[in-house]
């Protein structure tokens, strides 16, 4: 492991200890990697692979399935505008068009200063405040065109830093401690078994 900082690596190991099989920590660990780097780098995927006992290709295979895991760089603020049915009825298309004009990028693109990425999102489950907008997975409610412009200014000036951390930081509350119901011993045993199995499989492959 070479890319994760000491702190990230420690948190990643703590994640592994929560699951009966270490691969389950893969997606939470991708979030951790994004917290460290802002996006999911090749190097981070190699570290994740090592910690989860899979290949880097398997990490990429999982990560590319999920909208929130970015295997290409994104802006510090990922702005998601929902255009699904409830928001469509609430003027989402007009807002997205405004956002594209104001940022000078199409949905999916990032501004050249690296500050903003704009995304057209599917339903974000906040349908009583259409059109629904999130910045880095934080809800920003009631978005008229003027609200949106003000939002960009506040994000750029750092006025919203407390409410909206930079992209990648998802859960700012850390879990206190590991498993306590005595299941960890069982989990440890299972991990040892799957490691031994993987070793045997690898040995078999070498022999052939």
């Amino acid at each position: 492991m070479s890319h994760f900082s000491r702190e990230t690596a420690e948190r990643a190991r703590a994640l592994v200890a929560l699951y009966p099989e270490r691969r389950s920590a893969l997606i939470p660990m991708c979030h951790l990697a994004q917290e460290q780097d802002g996006w999911l780098t090749e190097e981070a995927m190699e570290d994740i692979a090592e910690l989860c006992g899979v290949t880097p290709a398997e990490v990429r295979g999982t990560a590319t399935f999920y909208d929130m895991l970015h295997t290409e760089p994104v802006g510090e603020y990922v702005i998601s505008v929902c255009t699904n049915i409830a928001c469509l009825l609430g003027g989402a298309d007009e807002l997205l068009e405004h956002a594209e004009e104001r940022l000078g990028v199409r949905a999916g693109g990032s501004t050249t200063d690296g500050l903003f990425t704009l995304e057209e999102a599917e339903c974000l489950a906040d349908c009583d405040f259409p059109p629904c907008v999130q910045v880095n997975s934080r809800f920003v409610r009631r978005q008229s065109a003027e609200d949106f412009d003000r939002l960009l200014d506040e994000l750029a000036s750092g006025a919203l830093a407390d409410e909206v951390p930079k992209h990648g930081t998802l859960i700012r509350v850390r879990r206190d401690g590991g498993l306590r119901a005595g299941r960890s011993e069982v989990a440890e045993e299972r991990r040892a078994m799957s490691a031994a199995q993987a070793e045997r499989a690898a040995a078999g492959k070498d022999a052939s």
């Binding site: 929130m68 974000l124 489950a125 997975s137 934080r138 998802l170 700012r172 850390r174 879990r175």
Partner: peptide, 16 residues
């Protein structure tokens, strides 16, 4: 759901 950042923080706090 991953997009529920506040929800994830609140449930994590509740579990703690």
């Amino acid at each position: 759901r991953g997009e529920f950042a506040l929800g994830l923080e609140r449930v994590t706090q509740a579990v703690n």
